[in-house]
Amino acid sequence: CHSECLGNCSQPDDPTKCVACRNFYLDGRCVETCPPPYYHFQDWRCVNFSFCQDLHHKCKNSRRQGCHQYVIHNNKCIPECPSGYTMNSSNLLCTPCLGPCPKVCHLLEGEKTIDSVTSAQELRGCTVINGSLIINIRGGNNLAAELEANLGLIEEISGYLKIRRSYALVSLSFFRKLRLIRGETLEIGNYSFYALDNQNLRQLWDWSKHNLTITQGKLFFHYNPKLCLSEIHKMEEVSGTKGRQERNDIALKTNGDQASCENELLKFSYIRTSFDKILLRWEPYWPPDFRDLLGFMLFYKEAPYQNVTEFDGQDACGSNSWTVVDIDPPLRSNDPKSQNHPGWLMRGLKPWTQYAIFVKTLVTFSDERRTYGAKSDIIYVQTDATNPSVPLDPISVSNSSSQIILKWKPPSDPNGNITHYLVFWERQAEDSELFELDYCLKGLKLPSRTWSPPFESEDSQKHNQSEYEDSAGECCSCPKTDSQILKELEESSFRKTFEDYLHNVVFVPRKT
């Protein structure tokens, strides 16, 4: 048989008469490798580009789960590009990614509803959504962080984005990388972005840091009482949809009607710091009717980097990364020049730590249904340095008659930039024990000054392991946590139920 035959053949030295091919099969003959313009397919066939392209389009058009959109890589027609490569849609070739590779997620039936953290986790790592997304989240724990972890990498949506009755959302900033909504599939009414009845939605994105392009379709905003109209108009300008909307697409009466839409800028007039305090004062603000001013709200939190936005980490279910302080308005003076500047002394802060701070007014709604208010920009203030805590785990070892090696770990709280350490030492008198000992005694162990690591005695271990207080009263049991108490109650309830079950099964009433 021919060298490319495997198993047997019907005619000697003829690659077209093989029972099976050793390498690849091409047009009725066995070959060692697939010549151009053919590609290896499933490690035994040679196919042309049209064959591989037909497989790709067949799966793409069917949208069946589990099928493969075949691509070409290293002269092979394979189910998908290997790690580190992405497909070129024009020629199906796998090309190296520039940075992290995109991950295209194809949605069944063309859309997916995100109504819980669990459903959001199914899209973790996706960068391109081939379909439409509907966000409908009523509640949950730590929602802002969970949504950002699972949806934060999405850069492109081919269909539309719909935010509907998501009472738990305060902001859409968890879509931190969303840059493009194509609108290839539109919501009824030709809408590519749809926001309806979101009672706590206050911000779409921080438009000073976020760009969003909507290729096709219109915007729809109705019944978002805490979303200011200025935020919607800003989205029109940034996304390129200005002029597409009709009169009733953006409701003037049901958007922002319960919001404090600040239209003035508060400026800080005085800032002073110490290692654990920050004193702030800002310019006074009074609405047209000074009785509408209820006070100020001061927001602050630790910020290692200057990239904080107002609604980071917030949701309507209680999660809030900001510390909020309510401040009463100052006494009002008739003389504008003698107006008191409101302020606040922030206490209990960490030394040498940068804080993000902003302040906003708290006002009631005027009778004319106009909203007044003022808010400052987010500023960054760093507390002063102070003395560091003591170095940890000092170790001293003498390696000769004239040297001592000293080692330690950095302090747990540096409280500033540590530039150097101060080492103090003092000579001590020799131990009298060394002169009084009889060095001729056998088995004498000389006193040693070398360091030995501390260890816990058996008594201390027994005390720590004991669940009861000892007789001397030195140790006591740790208080039980809520989960331990709940577990004990469940076990007790189970024992009672099981005992009742045994009584009912074992003891049967005697027939009379």
Rank of each mutant, 00 (worst) to 15 (best):
residue 349 L to F: 05
residue 179 R to N: 08
residue 341 H to G: 12
residue 153 L to S: 12
residue 135 I to P: 00
residue 369 R to C: 03
residue 385 A to F: 04
residue 283 E to W: 07
residue 229 L to Q: 08
residue 255 N to S: 07
residue 181 I to S: 03
residue 220 F to V: 13
residue 331 L to P: 03
residue 324 V to E: 07
residue 202 R to K: 10
residue 182 R to Q: 09
residue 146 E to K: 10
residue 345 L to T: 04
residue 292 D to S: 04
residue 296 F to R: 01
residue 153 L to D: 14
residue 214 I to F: 12
residue 411 P to A: 05
residue 268 F to N: 02
residue 312 D to F: 15
residue 188 I to L: 11
residue 260 S to V: 07
residue 356 A to T: 13
residue 256 G to S: 09
residue 297 M to T: 02
residue 347 R to I: 04
residue 409 K to Q: 14
residue 130 N to C: 00
residue 214 I to L: 10
residue 333 S to Q: 13
residue 206 D to G: 08
residue 314 Q to F: 00
residue 106 H to Q: 11
residue 194 Y to P: 04
residue 381 V to A: 04
residue 215 T to Y: 10
residue 312 D to S: 12
residue 317 C to P: 08
residue 350 K to N: 08
residue 239 S to F: 07
residue 157 I to M: 07
residue 224 N to L: 06
residue 138 R to Q: 08
residue 186 L to Q: 12
residue 292 D to Y: 06
residue 363 V to I: 09
residue 116 S to I: 01
residue 264 E to H: 05
residue 195 A to M: 06
residue 234 K to Q: 11
residue 245 Q to M: 09
residue 186 L to W: 10
residue 144 A to T: 03
residue 180 L to S: 11
residue 104 V to I: 00
residue 118 T to E: 14
residue 274 S to I: 02
residue 116 S to L: 02
residue 104 V to E: 04
residue 356 A to S: 07
residue 213 T to Q: 10
residue 354 Q to C: 15
residue 248 N to H: 05
residue 255 N to A: 02
residue 153 L to P: 12
residue 176 R to D: 07
residue 371 T to Q: 07
residue 319 S to P: 14
residue 343 G to H: 13
residue 252 L to G: 13
residue 179 R to C: 14
residue 283 E to L: 09
residue 160 Y to D: 03
residue 197 D to N: 14
residue 174 F to R: 02
residue 225 P to S: 03
residue 281 R to L: 12
residue 113 T to M: 13
residue 324 V to L: 06
residue 331 L to M: 13
residue 229 L to I: 00
residue 104 V to M: 06
residue 191 Y to V: 11
residue 138 R to C: 00
residue 242 K to C: 13
residue 370 R to Q: 04
residue 122 E to K: 00
residue 191 Y to D: 08
residue 150 N to I: 02
residue 126 C to T: 01
residue 175 F to I: 13
residue 367 D to A: 02
residue 411 P to S: 04
residue 175 F to Y: 04
residue 142 N to P: 14
residue 219 L to P: 11
residue 231 E to Y: 01
residue 180 L to N: 07
residue 159 G to V: 03
residue 304 P to M: 13
residue 284 P to R: 03
residue 339 Q to C: 14
residue 197 D to W: 11
residue 389 S to H: 04
residue 323 T to H: 15
residue 171 S to R: 11
residue 360 K to F: 00
residue 324 V to S: 02
residue 383 T to K: 03
residue 157 I to Y: 01
residue 141 N to T: 11
residue 257 D to C: 03
residue 247 R to L: 12
residue 359 V to L: 07
residue 158 S to H: 08
residue 103 K to R: 11
residue 344 W to K: 12
residue 110 G to Y: 10
residue 213 T to K: 06
residue 368 E to R: 13
residue 363 V to N: 06
residue 124 R to V: 10
residue 141 N to P: 11
residue 294 L to H: 10
residue 392 L to K: 11
residue 244 R to H: 07
residue 193 F to E: 00
residue 272 R to W: 14
residue 187 E to M: 12
residue 117 V to T: 08
residue 359 V to P: 00
residue 311 F to K: 13
residue 277 K to N: 14
residue 324 V to H: 01
residue 206 D to C: 10
residue 275 F to L: 06
residue 370 R to W: 06
residue 303 A to F: 14
residue 151 L to Y: 02
residue 314 Q to L: 11
residue 146 E to G: 05
residue 144 A to D: 07
residue 266 L to A: 03
residue 399 N to S: 11
residue 380 Y to T: 13
residue 176 R to S: 13
residue 200 N to F: 07
residue 256 G to M: 02
residue 210 H to Y: 15
residue 280 L to T: 13
residue 394 P to S: 12
residue 360 K to V: 03
residue 118 T to R: 12
residue 108 L to A: 13
residue 313 G to Y: 09
residue 312 D to M: 12
residue 291 R to E: 00
residue 338 S to V: 13
residue 330 P to E: 04
residue 211 N to Q: 07
residue 269 S to I: 15
residue 116 S to H: 06
residue 208 S to W: 11
residue 167 Y to H: 03
residue 274 S to H: 11
residue 178 L to K: 02
residue 147 L to A: 06
residue 394 P to I: 03
residue 104 V to G: 03
residue 303 A to L: 10
residue 320 N to W: 09
residue 228 C to Q: 02
residue 256 G to T: 00
residue 300 Y to V: 09
residue 128 V to S: 07
residue 286 W to Y: 02
residue 134 I to G: 05
residue 352 W to S: 14
residue 201 L to P: 03
residue 357 I to S: 03
residue 230 S to Y: 00
residue 266 L to M: 05
residue 320 N to V: 04
residue 392 L to C: 15
residue 201 L to S: 05
residue 239 S to V: 11
residue 127 T to E: 04
residue 104 V to K: 03
residue 226 K to T: 05
residue 255 N to H: 02
residue 169 L to M: 13
residue 332 R to M: 04
residue 259 A to H: 11
residue 120 A to I: 04
residue 114 I to K: 01
residue 401 S to F: 11
residue 263 N to M: 02
residue 293 L to C: 02
residue 352 W to G: 03
residue 232 I to N: 03
residue 303 A to D: 07
residue 180 L to Q: 06
residue 240 G to E: 06
residue 114 I to P: 01
residue 194 Y to W: 11
residue 243 G to M: 09
residue 399 N to H: 13
residue 354 Q to I: 09
residue 320 N to C: 10
residue 380 Y to M: 06
residue 403 Q to G: 11
residue 384 D to C: 08
residue 139 G to E: 02
residue 103 K to G: 13
residue 139 G to W: 03
residue 157 I to G: 02
residue 257 D to P: 02
residue 274 S to T: 09
residue 169 L to C: 14
residue 372 Y to S: 05
residue 281 R to M: 10
residue 309 T to L: 14
residue 267 K to Q: 09
residue 393 D to I: 15
residue 323 T to R: 08
residue 154 I to N: 00
residue 123 L to T: 05
residue 287 P to N: 00
residue 141 N to M: 06
residue 311 F to C: 09
